[in-house]
Design a protein around this nucleic acid. Structure first.
Lengths: 143, 143
DNA sequence: AGATACTTTAGAATAATTCTAAAAACTGTT
DNA sequence: AACAGTTTTTAGAATTATTCTAAAGTATCT
């Protein structure tokens, strides 16, 4: 029973280490959530969507814990928050330099690699301010 | 008592015409809100901030009406919605091509002229989708 | 195992926004 | 100016996403 390289970094001990490295105790719920989030390809979740997914997979976790965990993971640099919709908060497992398509009809995000897109001509930040990040959102809709 | 050119387009009749052209009856509250929004330079408001401002200027308008009106103005192309903060919805009187600085500490927006900034390399939209808009948000914070 | 600090959780609390349905205000016509 | 018909406004209830609270549970260290 072979494992693809992708699945390699999803062993419990690896996940536990990842959490410890972030200063978080590897509790059952954090392990489960991390398992869902970091098991394979990069993904975008909302608190609700992740909660549903985890609960449907038979694990008992409260929504409050999902919120807590998403924020803790974000603070630890394991996730990144994406603001595209006034109604919902999205979290992205891809914390590297990249941008997004946002499918407005479905409330879905698709990554755009950071090296594909370039933003030129950004004026210097107002006095006393520094640029934290430049976000590009390409809003698309069904034809 | 001279008027600057800027104030010219703020006469009641002009505003009323603007509303009629948008298919909206020029009611007292819509006139007041439009007066505050389109009186001078471009601006960014939240429902709450505009409501406070109008109420403090002595006019009686409900928050629900401010929400209704902001949405109607947006649907009519008089305003544009800006999504930068998961917590609040912003509306911009500048409906032309431009982008934004977002001062995260103060929840404040500053326009970046559309011809100042260029976005290159946007991949083509996923099949069956078309690009609605490309939003750039330059998030800045106090040094 | 016990002590201690950290976590989880149910449920209450917030906050922004939307909904509802009844009262008020426009508009075009007499 | 009053009328009829439609559109608006509004107070307050309702919704939704998210956060808070305090009590119960769990991880870690000795």
């Amino acid at each position: 029973m072979g494992k693809t390289p992708r699945e390699t970094n999803v062993t419990p001990s690896f996940t536990a280490e990842k959490l410890r490295a972030a200063g978080l105790r590897p509790t059952r719920q954090r392990m489960e959530l991390a398992g869902h989030l970091f098991a394979g390809l990069d993904r975008h979740v909302t608190a609700e969507s992740l909660h549903d997914e985890v609960v449907n997979s038979g694990i008992k976790v409260s929504l409050a814990t999902v919120y807590n965990t998403l924020h803790q993971f974000t603070a630890a640099g394991l996730l990144r928050q994406v603001v595209v919709d006034a109604a919902r908060g999205y979290f992205d497992t891809n914390t590297g330099d990249h941008q997004h398509f946002f499918l407005e009809d479905e409330g879905m995000l698709i990554d755009i690699p950071g090296d594909a897109i370039q933003v030129a001509g950004v004026p210097s930040a107002p006095p006393g301010m520094l640029v934290d990040r430049v976000d590009v959102v390409v809003r698309v809709r069904r034809t």
